[in-house]
């Protein structure tokens, strides 16, 4: 059950065993946590930006990683602009890539 790679090995079963052990350890640690944590009180209620969340709200998928996307915006915008959805551009890219490949293969 050992996958030998070029410079080492990988054994998923051992890894799984370790992962299970760590999980158990974590649960054990958790069980020794604070006793004053109660369900149904404010302690488990959700907050959005310090405000109490209204009922039934869901932070949708599109809101995740807003900061990440915002930080990389200049690059990502350029990337998105390249995906024009314009068939002619698709063909152009194919020809450009073909030119590059052919030149590279022929000259190098």
């Amino acid at each position: 059950m050992i996958l030998e790679t070029f410079e080492g090995f990988w054994s998923p079963l051992v890894w799984t065993a370790v992962a299970v052990a760590v999980t158990l350890l974590a649960l054990a640690l958790r069980s020794r946590g604070r006793r004053d944590h109660k369900k149904g009180t404010e302690q488990t209620a959700p907050f959005l930006s310090g405000e109490a969340a209204p009922d039934g709200v869901h932070v949708g998928g599109q809101h995740l990683y807003w900061g990440f996307v915002e930080a990389l915006r200049p690059y990502i915008e350029r990337l998105r602009a390249a995906h024009t959805g314009f068939v002619v551009d698709y063909v152009t890219w194919l020809v450009v890539a073909l030119a590059g490949i052919m030149l590279l293969v022929l000259l190098v």
Binding site: D89, Y90, L94, A97, L98, I101, M102, V105, L106
Partner: peptide, 23 residues
């Protein structure tokens, strides 16, 4: 080499490699 280039172009396109992946 030219034939290799053409084959690579066609197959990489169908495989969806980046400059030709938009489809």
């Amino acid at each position: 080499q030219i034939a290799l280039g053409l084959l690579l172009g066609g197959l990489l396109m169908k495989a969806g490699s980046v400059p030709m992946h938009m489809w």
